[in-house]
Amino acid sequence: MSQFIIDIKDKTFPQRNDQEAFTAIQNLRFDIENHQFVCLVGPSGCGKTTLLNLIAGLDSEFNGLIRNSNKGVTIKSSYVFQTPRLLPWRTVLDNIQLAMGENSSPTSVIESLLESLGLKNCLYKFPQQLSLGMQRRVALARAFSVPSDLLLMDEPFVSLDQTTARKARKLLLRLWSEQARKVIFVTHDLNEAFELADRILFLSESPSHIIADIPIDMPQLDRSAVDIKKLKERASIDHPSIHSLL
């Protein structure tokens, strides 16, 4: 099993016009192995999205390294952004196939994936013909269709109503159990984190670093609302440093 090492010594945004230079991340280090589902939790503005962009390779201006433990093997990641980010001028099918690239799976495979996400007869629709919740599910389907070792998710269910968000989380867990891979999931919703994660990393205010690393052993699908509450309580007793976030 491969292991990914994320070790960021320093990520600073340079001074620009009237804004002063800003250090977003400092000495943030963690490994992620097997098919771990990691949730990142932290106060807003602490650099969670910045961190995901670094890992995704969208921003390469930082000190430190992000790499596969097998040297020379690159990390292939797919990314579910805060907004769906679908191409409005391409159909749902085109959006997914474009992301998959040359070795795109046949239409029928994509269709059955979409159907399992409750998106029947959407293949040839344009994103604007779908609701926001449906667009997010298309984005999820896109991320899972692309062969990747690491799935990055940046508050993908924010601004969905509670019921839809709960359904989406269940779908995510099902997809993840079917097509296991490493996941880094950013959220500010602790219940969401305790529902989904194998391991929760708590980040400090910026310049952010890890203040607590809490593993959760109970399988996700077995967790009830009561379990989640208990897990939260235990975490707050074991790690007083995260008290302000709970």
């Binding site: 391409r90 474009l98 690239g101």
Partner: peptide, 21 residues
């Protein structure tokens, strides 16, 4: 910029980005 970032993470490449994004 958000769509350009999307194209970059999903490794669209130059030509595909030009054509579709």
């Amino acid at each position: 910029e958000e769509l350009l970032q999307m194209a970059k993470t999903y490794r669209f490449g130059r030509f595909k980005t030009l054509q579709h994004v």
